[in-house]
Nucleic acid binder design. Structure first.
Length: 202
DNA sequence: TCGCGGATGAACT
DNA sequence: GTTCATCCGCGAG
């Protein structure tokens, strides 16, 4: 996949309100990050679904100050820090009051790569946004974005161009210790920007 | 290409 | 004190 027709912001109402459906729907869509007058864009190539009543989902034990964004209406941003070193970018995925989300695991850089490179010490373009922690670093994502609406104008929103529906493959999720067998990871088949071991990229 | 271990911070028991 | 939806560097195959 390559760039890039004009990008149109998604509107609430055209995107699904159901976690697996949203995880699949977001593949091929575009993350637009606007910060300090700079614009970065990248296509979503890998997602994971974290369902209601899913023991691997942060909302599983109920609402807390950290995870409250997962309980917002579908399309809101949930960011948290993992392992003290990496931020994770999620989109809430169910009706208000239901805790669930979609983790964005890998992106294909489209525009503003010079800003992404500046955020990394040393990284080739393929690795800039390959992996959930790396993509957050490249796009300067932290808790300040938590709770914002990704279907509204702002520092981070989801858009679409005229690219056709991608060829979607699935696998088990990566890096978790609960519900490890559920096939809730989705990615664009054949994309070289997908993360994880080679056996989980086909 | 893989698997391993350490770094690191915040939330929660 | 324990648990992590990770990354990086390293060594083995």
């Amino acid at each position: 996949m390559t760039a890039s027709a004009p990008i149109r912001r998604l509107e609430r109402g055209e995107a699904p309100v159901e976690t697996v459906a949203l995880a699949r729907y977001l593949l091929g869509k575009i993350v637009v990050r606007e910060a300090d007058g700079r614009i970065m864009t990248a296509r979503i190539v890998e997602t994971e679904a974290y369902l209601p009543l899913d023991p691997a989902c942060h909302a599983f034990r109920g609402l807390t100050p950290r995870n409250r964004s997962l309980f917002l209406d579908a399309g809101h941003i949930y960011v948290y820090m993992c392992y003290g070193t990496s931020h994770m970018l999620n989109i809430s995925s169910e009706a208000a009051g239901v805790g669930a989300g979609v983790l964005l695991r890998a992106l294909e850089p489209l525009g503003g790569m010079e800003y992404m490179r500046a955020a990394h010490k040393r990284c080739n373009d393929r690795d800039l946004t390959r992996g959930p922690g790396r993509l957050a670093t490249a796009l300067s994502i932290d808790r300040r974005l938590d709770g914002l609406d990704a279907y509204a104008p702002g520092p981070l929103w989801i858009g679409s161009d005229t690219t056709g529906a991608p060829d979607i493959a699935s696998s088990v999720r990566i890096g978790i210790s609960k519900a490890v067998r559920a096939p809730l990871r989705f990615f664009i088949a054949g994309s070289r920007f997908v993360s994880g071991p080679a056996r989980l990229r086909r």
